[in-house]
């Protein structure tokens, strides 16, 4: 099953989101891939509120097994979460555990008016009742494979499928 190129998915994701953006909309990217996508969307959609980023490692239910896989990058929510319309941005939606962790972390900052989820691709394999609000591509991958977003030195994004 061929995968559409990541830049095309970014453009399609932006068109899905565009009609729903308001002056109170803020984007929050999840480290690391989600932040790359969120940076691009933030510019493309002309979002006024500054871009937020989250390292959800501290909130994951598998920290003990995986440690701080989000790396050293800290979370940064440079706007008032209370009453904001927040779109969480990630590269791939899989088990839903990352999104669960992100929602927990987000609510420690305040009570948003609405939270939505934007991803480039949904690869199936959900373990929690989580669904994306905006998603331009759905595919089904076996559990033995992982779908990774990578960023080249020139900033261009590309998906790769890796055997675990």
């Amino acid at each position: 099953m061929p995968l559409p190129p990541a830049p095309e998915l970014c453009r399609r994701l932006a068109e899905l989101m565009r009609p729903h953006m308001t002056p109170k909309t803020a984007l929050v990217g999840i480290h690391t891939g989600g932040v790359w996508v969120a940076e691009w969307l933030h510019k493309e959609l002309g979002i006024a509120l500054p871009l937020g980023t989250m390292n959800v490692s501290f909130y994951r239910d598998d920290y003990s097994q995986r440690g701080l896989h989000g790396g050293r990058k800290p979370s940064s929510i440079p706007f008032d979460v209370a009453d904001a319309h927040i779109v969480i941005v990630d590269d791939v939606l899989y088990t839903g555990r990352t999104i669960r962790a992100a929602l927990n972390e987000l609510f420690d900052y305040g009570r948003p008016a609405k939270v939505e989820l934007a991803v480039l691709a949904d690869r199936g394999g959900r373990e929690l009742p989580v669904a994306a609000t905006y998603c331009p591509h759905v595919l089904s991958l076996p559990a033995a494979q992982s779908l990774n977003l990578e960023r080249a030195e020139d900033g261009s994004l590309a998906f790769t499928v890796v055997e675990k």
Partner: peptide
């Protein structure tokens, strides 16, 4: 390395992670 993101937790209004 692990300590680095924890410095940011202390600057939050909610200075706690689970």
């Amino acid at each position: 390395d692990t300590a680095e993101p924890f410095t940011e937790v202390a600057e939050r209004e909610m200075k706690k992670v689970p």
